[in-house]
Design a protein around this nucleic acid. Structure first.
Length: 605
DNA sequence: GCCGTTTTCGGCCCGACTGTTTTCAGTCG
């Protein structure tokens, strides 16, 4: 785990413990906010504490928080954290992590029944003592029991690439309904986060169809794979659905229904992030306005409406006129803000921009620079690969099979690579010319544990393109990893540093180098850093991309193609790039053929 | 504990839904 993630975890825990102790809620919120700010930092806190002003410039980090962060970096602990821990039973945090159980309820369990952990909670359910708590009835206990059963099957966030296909199916189903005017997936999926906790959908009904709101929730909750419906109101339905047909793994799905005039405001709010939404609402509040999922309103007008709303709460047709609400961008403009793309809505500097950034888009991508054939561990023949790349309109396809050390991946020994180069050059002359696509002879060469490359320089120099990636020794020490990657990024024949950390989302932590140093080396030597678009990798990750973009590095977005469908992972790589504020100019794959060729030459003798 | 185009003190986003209540507290996103 990176230092940033570890620190964020400590701050989050502090926030939860402050809540459990029933102390100042705003202090708890401040710690939670600081935790989120730290986890979305593009820089390692270890370097940030050296320049305190820049640490203090981070939204949500003030003087006291900066001191705690400094203490953590210096000693690996925060005294106040340990003091809190001594006052709160460790198992109580597990209890509070059960959906439906918040700080007030868990505190009551603790102080009146002596419950200190999940076994204690189970016991209190069984012996009937739990139901004696205030505001605790049979239904509430049943819900807790259900949550307990669910919690044991694991609640880790779902990789973007596993959740997205289900989201697409649901959006299509919603859009096909006769009363639906618009439907979009929102939440962290829309923001392109590498993992998502749940799926959010915003649906607008056609004018005159407002009475049919309740049909929409039923439309989704009647889908195959729905295991239980958690809540179902006229405008909001929550349920759990199997991630794939037959899969035991489920994900929470929330569907919100709004009138068409409110669609933008609802989409804005349910896209988040939480901190971005809070910043917008605070901004509105200072202007005597109120922003909610129904639109942007004069505060007085909204209050008057809302006070009378209960009488007709299943009727969505009478929301008062808003200052903005139909489109997200209208809301930003009405607040005198620049519209912000979803992927960078993190309340981290996006409100400082003077105009909407033009971030890289899938349609900008014009070449693929990292692809395997059946010469190593791909399933496509050279011809199939070239045809598919051409079919997708690419001007260049790089054939980069594995190098000799990757024996499991059938890596090529030097002799075999020489013959492979000839075959690729031949294909470039024949099929490439015919399909108007340039075929590059390349290699994804292993970066050995000490930073040396897996072929000698003479052989590397014969290749049109070299992607250098780590594949083994992925649990080595951070300092060694930094040296290793810096050495590879500084190599005069390397064009691209491929999936630099080697992490696999939810499965393998990968290397933990000082990315600041790696980025600096890449910048100095004109080496591009790869965003590997496979949803299991997304490596560089979003925060690394942002640091690299800030440093002025070139970035590639590569599908690391092994099979036809891998080309479709591009959207995930692009989303990660966008989260890192990547513009087309800095993204090599958006350049025209001549510019890419010229760039490749700069790294050849 | 953070923060400032009202403020260095005194605020702190806002609504839906549930289950428990006869008017609301707690949780969630």
């Amino acid at each position: 785990m990176s230092t940033n993630d570890a620190l964020a975890g400590v701050l989050h825990e502090m926030s939860r413990m402050i809540e459990l102790l029933g102390e100042d809620q705003f202090r708890a919120n401040a710690h939670a906010r600081a935790s989120r700010a730290v986890s979305s930092l593009s820089e390692d806190v270890r370097s940030l504490v050296k320049e305190k002003e820049r640490l203090l410039a981070v939204d949500g980090i003030g003087k006291k928080m900066a001191d705690k962060i400094e203490e953590y970096v210096a000693t690996g602990r925060i005294g106040e954290h340990e003091e809190l821990r001594s006052r709160v039973p460790a198992g109580l945090l597990d209890v509070m992590s059960i959906p439906g159980l918040g700080p007030k309820t868990v505190r009551a369990m603790w102080t009146t029944l002596g419950i200190e952990d999940i076994p204690g909670l189970r016991k209190a359910i069984d012996d009937g003592s739990l139901v004696t708590l205030p505001r605790m009835g049979e239904k509430a206990v049943a819900k807790i029991k259900e949550s307990l059963a669910l919690a044991s099957q694991g609640d880790e966030r779902v990789a973007l690439g596993l959740a997205a296909p289900l989201a697409w199916v649901i959006v299509e189903r919603l859009r096909a309904h006769k009363h639906v005017a618009r439907a979009e997936a929102a939440g962290s999926l829309r923001r392109g986060k590498e993992t998502v906790g749940d799926l959010d959908f915003v649906v607008a009904l056609k004018k005159g169809s407002e009475k049919h709101a309740s049909e929409i929730g039923e439309l989704v909750s009647s889908m195959a794979g729905v295991s239980n419906v958690i809540a179902g109101g006229p405008t909001r339905t929550s349920m759990r659905i199997a991630l794939a047909p037959g899969s035991k793994r489920t994900i929470q799905v929330d569907v919100r229904v709004v009138p068409l005039a409110c669609f933008g405001a609802a989409l804005l709010y349910f896209t988040g992030s939480k901190d971005h939404s809070i910043a917008l609402r605070t901004h509105a509040q200072k202007r005597g306005l109120t922003l909610n999922e129904w639109g942007l309103f004069e505060e007085k007008a909204w209050r008057k409406y809302h006070a009378t709303r209960e009488a007709h709460d299943d009727d969505l047709s009478d929301v008062p006129d808003s200052l903005a609400g139909a489109e997200e961008n209208d809301v930003y403009r009405a607040l005198e803000l620049v519209p912000i793309p979803p992927e960078v809505r993190e309340a981290q500097r996006e409100f400082d921009v003077k105009k909407t950034p033009r971030l890289v888009e899938v349609g900008d991508i014009r070449c693929e620079l990292h692809a395997h054939t059946n010469a190593s561990d791909g399933v496509l023949s050279l011809e199939q690969l070239i045809r598919e790349a051409a079919r997708r309109g690419f001007h260049t396809i790089a054939v980069t099979d594995h190098s000799q050390s990757s024996t499991i991946a059938n890596g090529l020994k030097p002799d075999r690579l020489r013959r492979h180069i000839e075959a690729i050059r031949e294909a470039n002359e024949t099929l490439g010319k015919k399909l108007k696509i340039r075929v590059l002879a390349g290699s994804e060469v292993d970066i050995l544990a000490d930073g040396r490359l897996d072929y000698d320089d003479e052989l590397l120099a014969m290749l049109d393109i070299v992607v250098a990636s780590p594949h083994a020794a992925l649990s080595q020490d951070g300092t060694l990893a930094t040296k290793r990657l810096v050495r590879a990024a500084s190599h005069p024949l390397v064009h691209i540093l491929g999936h630099p950390t080697g992490r696999l989302i939810n499965r393998r932590k990968g290397l933990d180098p000082d990315m600041g140093e790696v980025i600096a080396a890449a910048k100095e030597h004109g080496t591009a850093l790869e965003i590997n678009a496979h949803w299991m990798r997304l490596d560089l990750r979003d925060t690394h991309v942002r640091a690299a973009v800030d440093a002025g590095c070139d970035i590639t977005i590569d599908c690391d193609v092994h099979a036809l469908e891998d080309f479709d992972n591009l959207a995930f790589g692009v989303a990660t790039g966008r989260r890192g504020w990547l513009t087309p100019e800095r993204c090599v794959n958006t350049w025209d053929a001549a510019a890419v060729a010229k760039w490749l030459k700069t790294k050849r003798p």
